[in-house]
Deep mutational scan, measured.
Amino acid sequence: MTVRVDGVDYEFSSLEEAVRFALKMAKSKGAEVQLHNGTFHVE
């Protein structure tokens, strides 16, 4: 599972870890999280 934040990809071994990271980053940026074909994008 890959989480992309500001064009940088972060790899996670589990969906749970990836979701937690994506939500944490989105909250800190006041951004939204989108899921596309198994890849999260924080914008």
Rank of each mutant, 00 (worst) to 15 (best):
V33C: 15
E11Q: 12
M25P: 00
F21M: 01
M25W: 09
A22H: 01
E32M: 13
E16S: 08
K27C: 15
V8G: 01
N37T: 06
S28T: 11
G38N: 08
G30L: 07
A26W: 10
V8R: 09
M1P: 08
G7A: 02
F12S: 00
F40I: 14
K29H: 13
D6I: 02
Y10H: 04
K29F: 13
R20W: 09
S14A: 03
D9A: 10
E43F: 14
R20F: 08
E32H: 13
G30Q: 06
L15M: 12
V19H: 09
R20L: 09
V42N: 07
Y10C: 11
T39S: 12
N37K: 08
L15E: 05
V3N: 00
V33E: 02
E11N: 12
V5L: 04
F12D: 00
G7S: 03
F12L: 02
G38K: 07
E17T: 03
S13L: 10
S28Q: 14
A31M: 13
L35P: 03
D6Y: 08
A22V: 05
G30C: 15
R20N: 07
Y10F: 08
M25H: 03
F12E: 00
L23T: 07
H41V: 14
Q34G: 05
G7D: 04
A31S: 08
V19T: 06
V5T: 01
R20I: 09
T2D: 01
Q34F: 15
V3F: 04
E43H: 11
S13P: 10
E11A: 12
H36M: 11
F21W: 06
V8P: 00
V5F: 07
F12V: 01
R4Q: 04
L23E: 04
V33S: 03
F21D: 00
E17C: 15
E16L: 11
Y10Q: 01
M25L: 06
E32Q: 13
F12N: 00
L23A: 06
K27S: 12
R20P: 00
E17W: 03
A26D: 02
H36Y: 11
E11P: 09
V33A: 05
V42G: 08
V42E: 08
Y10E: 00
V5N: 01
T39M: 14
S28I: 14
M1Q: 05
A18V: 02
V33Y: 03
A31L: 11
E17G: 03
S14G: 03
E16Y: 12
F21S: 00
V42W: 08
F12Y: 01
L15D: 02
H41A: 05
R4H: 09
E32T: 14
E11D: 07
Y10I: 03
V5K: 01
T39A: 12
S13A: 11
V8C: 15
K27Q: 13
H36I: 15
A18C: 12
K29C: 15
F40D: 08
L15C: 15
K29N: 09
S13V: 07
N37Q: 05
S14M: 02
E43Q: 11
L15K: 08
V8L: 06
V42A: 06
Q34Y: 15
V19Q: 07
R4P: 00
V42Q: 07
E32G: 09
D9V: 11
L35M: 11
Y10N: 01
S14H: 03
H36N: 09
L23Q: 07
R20Q: 10
K27N: 12
R4D: 02
R4A: 02
N37F: 10
E11R: 14
E43L: 14
N37W: 06
K27R: 11
V3I: 05
V42D: 09
V5E: 01
F12G: 00
D6R: 04
L35C: 15
G30S: 05
V33L: 06
M1V: 12
E16V: 10
T2Y: 13
E17Q: 07
A18T: 01
V8M: 07
A18E: 00
T2I: 11
V19Y: 15
Y10M: 02
H36P: 04
Y10W: 05
L23Y: 12
A31G: 12
H41M: 08
A22W: 05
K27F: 13
E43R: 11
E17F: 03
L23P: 00
H41E: 11
A31R: 09
E11C: 15
D6Q: 04
E17A: 10
G7E: 03
N37E: 09
R20S: 08
G38Q: 05
Y10A: 00
L15V: 12
F12W: 01
S13K: 10
K27E: 13
S14C: 15
F21Y: 04
L15T: 09
L35T: 05
E43I: 15
R20D: 05
R4G: 01
T39D: 08
K24Y: 14
F12M: 01
G30V: 05
G7F: 03
E17S: 05
V33K: 02
G30M: 06
N37G: 10
V3Y: 04
V3C: 10
K27P: 02
V3E: 00
R4L: 03
L35K: 04
L35Q: 05
K24L: 12
V3A: 02
S28D: 13
V19R: 11
D6W: 08
A26P: 01
V19F: 14
G38D: 07
F40Q: 10
T2F: 14
V42H: 06
S28A: 13
V8H: 06
S14I: 03
T2E: 01
A26M: 10
V3T: 01
E32S: 14
G30Y: 07
S13N: 10
A31N: 04
G38P: 08
G7L: 02
K29S: 11
V33P: 03
A18H: 00
L15I: 12
V42Y: 06
H41Y: 14
K29Q: 10
V5A: 03
D9N: 11
M25D: 01
L23V: 08
H41R: 04
E16I: 11
L23I: 11
V8Q: 07
L23S: 04
H36L: 13
F21N: 00
V8N: 04
K24V: 09
S14F: 02
L35V: 09
M1G: 06
Q34V: 14
F12R: 00
D6L: 07
